[in-house]
């Protein structure tokens, strides 16, 4: 199993870099994961989405798709792509330390 080091702690990740165990994630790790994905500064809106991803994962066992995220976060689809250009649901899940959301829409 590959590992990554964020905020001086080693965590298990899968081949795509998603956390294997979301419990290993801490908020201090998020900026480092984001930076590795090309997001140099996490804004308030980024955090709103990241926290929502974690909350939804905790509740339902998987993160939301972009469409669902747009509906529940109050951040429009357009803004989501501005915040996370390389795929909002996918990137936000990675930064939030949860598995990649599965869903076609």
């Amino acid at each position: 199993m590959p590992t990554a080091t964020y905020a001086d702690r080693t965590v298990e990740v899968n081949d795509e870099g998603f956390f294997v165990d979301p419990a290993q994630w801490t908020e201090e790790m998020a900026p480092e994961i984001a930076e590795a994905e090309g997001i140099s500064q996490l804004s308030e809106d980024h955090w709103r989405v990241i926290k929502l991803m974690r909350a939804e994962y905790a509740e339902k066992g998987s993160g939301p798709s972009v469409r669902a995220l747009g509906k529940t976060s109050g951040v429009s689809v357009k803004e989501l792509y501005q915040l996370f250009p390389k795929g909002p649901a996918k990137l936000a899940a990675k930064i939030a330390g949860i598995p990649k959301p599965r869903g076609c829409i």
Partner: peptide, 11 residues
């Protein structure tokens, strides 16, 4: 449409 939307979701 689904393939286009899905492509964007993958970045």
């Amino acid at each position: 449409l689904i393939m286009a939307n899905g492509a964007r979701a993958e970045g």
